[in-house]
Write a protein that binds this DNA or RNA. Sequence first.
DNA 1: ATTCAATCGATATTCTATTATCGATATACC
DNA 2: GGTATATCGATAATAGAATATCGATTGAAT
Lengths: 224, 224
Amino acid sequence: MSKPVSAQALSRMPVYLHYLKALPTDKETNISAKALGLKLGFGEIQVRKDLAAVSDAGKPKLGYSVSELISDIEAFLGYDSVNDAVLVGAGKLGRALLSYEGFKANGLNIVAAFDSDEGKCGKDESGKQILPLEKLENLCRRMKIKIGIITVPAAQAQQVCELLISGGVEAVWNFAPTHLSVPQGVILKNENMAASLAVLSKRLSDKNSANKTAQVMQGKGDPK
Amino acid sequence: MSKPVSAQALSRMPVYLHYLKALPTDKETNISAKALGLKLGFGEIQVRKDLAAVSDAGKPKLGYSVSELISDIEAFLGYDSVNDAVLVGAGKLGRALLSYEGFKANGLNIVAAFDSDEGKCGKDESGKQILPLEKLENLCRRMKIKIGIITVPAAQAQQVCELLISGGVEAVWNFAPTHLSVPQGVILKNENMAASLAVLSKRLSDKNSANKTAQVMQGKGDPK
DNA sequence: ATTCAATCGATATTCTATTATCGATATACC
DNA sequence: GGTATATCGATAATAGAATATCGATTGAAT
């Protein structure tokens, strides 16, 4: 197991995992690559290749053992060992992430949040502590936190990022709509909503202009 | 202009755009692909190729005219014409997105939100209306809304998605952690945080186990 | 005016990811 | 038990994206 996996295959893993876990346990205990692909919108060969990289739960004629597959993917993703993280920026988005219950199913545990605004500090409705920014570096170091989540406004993001890194954080998950520069060796993952939106709206406008062109070509333009 | 652009190049466009817009206007009016790439962490050839696809603001020896580049990218992305959208699911994440001021800079205008919980209905602190779900289909049709944003729990996402589509929505931006199936012709963009997280945490654990291996190979394991 | 350095844009190459092909294997049916 | 069929896994082919090469162009320096 653990053959090389592309970043794209890697990001499909949670999709498989989520679907498999939602499967009723009483029904079939096995599932084929074809069936999985059909449900998730992937090609069946891609499914096989992805799964082959992380598991050997596949048997000809039978398909994959659902339960084995689940534990293999979880092990591969490291979801069995929980990653502790801190979050910086207790604005709307930050608090939404703090309250999100789904992270723990993905092996992520946000231990505390930080904000420069003392007014926001205290216990959040999620039950988690929001602490003043001054305590960030120390807490990260003490608790050996490796993951930092940035949900501050763009203008402060770089500064916060550096603070995290000086606290020993090795991976930064950035939700601020800006580019961060990090030293070699620190992992940076941008959650870039503007990028997603660009893809979405471009596809939409392409589709619509394609329709218009088709209509023009068929003489279906506005009748005068 | 408007040569074929890959989805990946497309998602870099907002990154260029954001950086260019943040540039001080009084300083240099031009910028080279090399300088841009250095700031944003892209290769200089990639930058040139990306920009060549949407603009002809590049001049040898001078670089690109910043202002021309900005308007070319904006035009390419369709940010000059605003897209109206609705949002379904006025939970924490939904309200965070409702309040986010940055969307309008990306040509997106959320006209209203919807929720099945009547208690959440009324005016949001963002100033936008939260309406009961029953009004969704009608409003979409009346206002010719083309984009729907889904921020409901996974269990309701498919149902909401179908409601949007029956209201005439042509593009769905899904924040629910689940796979949606949409009819041919409808554009679906999943904002999959679990996928991003998987990439992040895998890279982190790879890095750490690589370090350990290196230490072992160098005889730097725990001294006994 | 001529040369030089910077930088672009187009083409070619390499690398990566997806999709197709095909032999192998496990079960079910006869 | 033998044969047919579904399905896997490995290898090969294709497609797509990133990167390198190179000639062309522009402004600056001599």
